[in-house]
Amino acid sequence: MTTVKTNAIRRPPLIKWFAFQAVVVFLMGALFWIKSPVAAYSALAGGFIFLLPNVYFALKAFRYTGARAAKQIMGSFYKGEAGKLILCAVLFAIAFKSIKPIDESALFLTFAIMLVTNWLTPAVMGGKTQHS
């Protein structure tokens, strides 16, 4: 009799990943402090405009596990992504409406850096999510 070894797909270590990304946001704020306090808080806003919708997505997308929940998994990914985009747009609108003065370049540059950081986080943090 042989035993079948299955590779269960695990959730990625989201708390570690988001903690790492939050550190990057605060580092960007500190770097922009060199330019000005306005650039610093604008950079923080840009970073959190990226980070908060991604936390929402992760909470939605990784609610279900297992092959039997494939339909729920797909649905939660689509709902999470739609909610993330809407939340991102709302947060940008709030930032531009309520943060005065604002350094647009610091806000958008930090947002863009967080996009790249998001792509690199699994590699930097040891992104293996499966057992072998």
Rank of each mutant, 00 (worst) to 15 (best):
K100A: 09
M114F: 05
I15K: 08
S132M: 11
N118E: 09
H131Y: 10
F50G: 01
L51Y: 01
T6C: 07
A67T: 14
I34H: 06
M125I: 07
R63N: 10
T110E: 04
P101C: 02
G83R: 11
A123P: 05
G126F: 13
T65Y: 11
H131M: 11
F57R: 10
F20N: 03
L107V: 00
L31T: 00
I34C: 03
S36H: 02
S42Q: 03
Q130D: 14
I102D: 06
I49L: 06
I86N: 11
A106S: 03
L91T: 05
M125D: 04
I102A: 08
Q72A: 15
F20W: 09
Q21G: 06
I86E: 11
T129G: 13
Y41M: 08
Y64I: 06
L85P: 11
G46L: 04
R11L: 12
A82P: 09
I113G: 08
W17L: 03
A22N: 12
I49M: 03
Y41C: 09
F18I: 02
R68E: 15
N7P: 08
G80M: 11
F48W: 04
F50V: 05
Q130G: 11
Y78C: 12
A67C: 13
N7G: 10
F111V: 06
L120D: 03
P13L: 06
I99A: 00
I86Q: 10
W33D: 05
S36P: 03
T121G: 00
G75I: 12
V23Q: 06
E104G: 12
R11Q: 13
L107F: 07
L120Y: 07
